[in-house]
């Protein structure tokens, strides 16, 4: 059972990472980091329910709750930044922002 859950978690994480690297839309990139966090949550809950050895513990579930809280805090900040950026340029494309670079 554990292996199946871990595969789902790793797949979600990998999809999020690939999406983060390849996409240029600020909202999509943000959603990709959320996808990565959800993959981690699947891992944590799976390890909590089906430990490698020993008895199930609740640490994984507790960790996943805190992780969701952190993800929500990041969502609040990320969307605020996206709104401010949109007001300047009127687009969500990350590649139009090149004010800072090596000369």
């Amino acid at each position: 059972m554990l292996v199946a859950y871990l595969l789902v978690g790793a797949a979600l994480f990998a999809l999020g990472l690939i999406g983060f690297v390849t996409r240029r839309n600020l909202i999509i990139m943000f959603l990709c980091t959320e996808l990565m966090f959800q993959g981690i949550v699947v891992n944590l809950v799976a390890f909590g329910r089906y430990p490698l050895d020993g008895n199930p513990t609740l640490d994984g579930q507790v960790f996943s709750l805190f992780l969701l809280a952190v993800a929500a805090a990041e969502a609040a900040l990320g969307l605020a930044l996206v709104v401010l950026l949109y007001r300047y340029k009127g687009t969500l494309d990350a590649s139009v922002w090149k004010l800072l670079k090596d000369v």
Binding site: F37, I40, N43, V70, G78
Partner: peptide, 28 residues
């Protein structure tokens, strides 16, 4: 924005590692 996006991704990578460490140790 650059700092935040990369930071969120790095935090996710760290947390993924932490989830496997938790799996091996069986506790946090």
């Amino acid at each position: 924005t650059k700092y935040f996006y990369l930071g969120a991704m790095a935090a996710a990578i760290t947390a993924f590692g932490f989830s496997y460490l938790y799996g091996v140790t069986g506790g946090a």
